[in-house]
């Protein structure tokens, strides 16, 4: 391996690592706030990328219809469940987020799709379509189980993952797609050619991570989320609704997944089930951060990307084995470090 090849591998590894970092951070966010290991995180990636493709092809993507149906389902479920859920004022508010929002987005798709306005319109629209999915899925599948043990939540997460994969096949078909690149420009840095698309990935990830840092450190909502993740009961006692924290966490996770999907759509072929493996690598990074530490998860994601890239050069048949084996020493170290067994809070 000479210096040039090492540079190319590093570029590839860091670009992939940046995507894994976004997913790893979402997983940590969702787990700390709601104790859900978000297995379907990868599906948001595939949905994001394929929604862009759908819009580019001038069709209304299946995501928009799914949003409408899920929104209506959530609205009905909430009206039936909550004791105060049938007060007219609350019903009005809910109708706004659950019925009007998806209808408006569907309308926007209907107008925008045939116009072929390019990636600057389709990409944000795709993220806007996928992000509310997170909130609806939380309210439909996880909120009723909020008090259940982690294992039950994990099983529900696997169920949601399988359902989303199946719907993905129905919406987008079995073939892979590529979306149009944001830019075809590339930059020459010494001996290395850096593609514009990987600069986009790195730039967007940096901006997102910085804004996450600002959000958690300097806004009331962010601090409330942190409080919920430190102590759920305590947070409720001081008046932070655990319910809303969950909705915010899931919406952010879905949005970050969709952004990752939009970013990788032009550089690779995305299938309806591509997301799972990417999400799994994000999970490896999140676990390395003990599912609680954002900085360690982000650093670990970069490491996963680099290991993967070097492994695909040196021993491509064992690439996945090598990547997923790295988790074993981490688990060993973490179990040695924590001297007491934490009781699961019920």
């Amino acid at each position: 391996m000479d210096f040039n090849i090492a540079l190319f591998l590093a570029q590839d590894g860091i670009t992939n690592g940046a995507i894994y970092a976004l997913l790893g951070l979402s997983l940590v966010l969702v787990f700390t706030v709601t104790r859900v290991i978000l297995v379907p995180q990868g599906e948001f990636v595939a949905y994001g990328a394929l929604t862009v493709v759908g819009l580019e092809m001038g069709t209304i993507p299946g995501t928009a219809w799914l949003l409408l149906v899920l929104g209506a389902a959530v609205f009905v479920a909430d009206a039936l469940r909550a004791e105060n859920g049938r007060q007219p004022r609350i019903l009005m508010l809910r109708a706004l987020t659950d019925l009007v929002l998806p209808a408006v987005l569907l309308g926007v798709c209907w107008v925008v799709a045939p116009l072929d306005l390019g990636v600057w319109v389709t990409a944000p629209l795709a993220v806007a379509l996928v992000a509310p999915l997170g909130a609806y899925i939380y309210r439909l599948a996880f909120r009723p189980l909020a008090q259940s043990p982690v294992l039950v939540l994990l099983i529900a997460a696997v169920g949601v993952h399988l359902a989303m994969i199946g719907l993905g096949l129905v919406f987008f078909g079995a073939e892979g797609f590529r979306s149009e690149p944001f830019t075809t420009a590339s930059l020459t840095l010494g001996p290395m050619m850096v593609s514009g698309q990987s600069l986009w990935v790195l730039g967007t990830t940096s901006v997102l991570i910085t804004s996450l840092w600002f959000f958690f450190g300097h806004t009331i909502t962010g601090k409330a989320l942190r409080a919920t993740s430190v102590n759920r009961l305590g947070a409720r006692l001081v008046g932070i609704p655990a319910d809303r924290s969950g909705i915010i966490a899931f919406t952010m996770a879905a949005a970050m997944g969709a952004i990752s999907g939009v970013l990788i759509g032009p550089v690779t072929t995305v299938f309806y089930d591509t997301g799972f493996l990417i999400g799994l690598k994000g999970l490896v990074a999140a676990i390395m951060g003990g599912l609680v530490s954002y900085p360690i998860a982000a650093a670990a994601a970069l490491a996963v990307g680099l290991i993967e890239s070097v492994a695909s050069f040196e021993a491509s048949s064992f690439k996945e084995v090598i990547v997923f084996t790295t988790i074993i020493p981490v688990l060993l170290w973490q179990s040695l470090r924590s001297s007491h067994v934490e009781e699961e809070e019920e």
């Binding site: 190319f8 590839d12 550089v267 690779t268 299938f271 591509t274 890239s309 695909s312 050069f313 690439k319």
Partner: peptide
Amino acid sequence: GRADTSVTG
């Protein structure tokens, strides 16, 4: 792998 996002290496 079929679902790999990068084959640069």
